[in-house]
């Protein structure tokens, strides 16, 4: 595959090449997916070294286990699954879990165009607003389990709280969201 073909190739094709030992395909996958992975992991762990190591481990896992991709779903989602679990693994190695979540409530300085506001609310209904009104503790649980696709156990490791607490917070979050959306 030459450079042009590589740029055009689908992620799935690139993975197949990687499974075959093609380092250039790995490079292309890295260029496509490392930036968002780094950003997304940074939004879950403030320690840049931990994020760096997690991303490195992730792409090593991609290099070695490219044949493990079963063809279902986006390659990006597959990579995320690996990445977030590597992050959890890294956090377990640290003596204390690092600050898990950047807390933010929205930025007054960012002015959304009217169109964007409409589009976002079409995508998520009032869920966005409702979500933003949850306390950080509840919000982080929702993010971990619903958006990041983690199990209760994994979420508890990522957030540094007991699994039971994850479950109770999830229940409370559901009650609050239902209340807000009603």
């Amino acid at each position: 595959m030459d450079t042009g073909a590589r740029r055009q190739a689908t992620d799935a094709d690139l993975l197949a090449s990687v499974a075959d030992g093609d380092r250039l395909a790995l490079r292309e996958l890295y260029e496509r997916h490392a930036p968002w992975l780094v950003a997304r992991l940074r939004h879950r762990c403030a320690d840049p070294t931990v994020v760096h190591d997690s991303v490195q481990d992730t792409f090593m896992a991609v290099w070695k286990g490219a044949s493990g991709y079963d063809g279902r779903g986006d390659v990006a989602a597959w990579i995320w699954g690996i990445g977030v679990r590597r992050l959890i693994g890294q956090l377990r190695k640290s003596p204390r879990p690092t600050v898990p979540l950047l807390d933010h409530h929205g930025d007054e300085a960012l002015l959304l165009s009217a169109e964007e506001q409409v589009l976002i609310s079409v995508e998520h209904g009032d869920l966005a607003g409702a979500l933003n009104q949850l306390s950080p503790e509840l919000r982080s649980v929702v993010q971990a389990t619903v958006l990041d696709g983690l199990t209760t156990r994994e979420a508890s490791k990522l957030l540094g709280i007991p699994a039971g607490t994850v479950k109770t917070r999830m229940m409370r979050a559901r009650i609050e969201l239902r209340g807000s959306l009603a």
Binding site: S17, D20, G21, D22, R23, A25
Partner: peptide
């Protein structure tokens, strides 16, 4: 090593 591998165009099979 990477430089000479690139030079002869074996990047794609370097890990094989």
């Amino acid at each position: 090593v990477r430089r000479v591998i690139s030079l002869v165009g074996l990047d794609e099979v370097a890990g094989r």
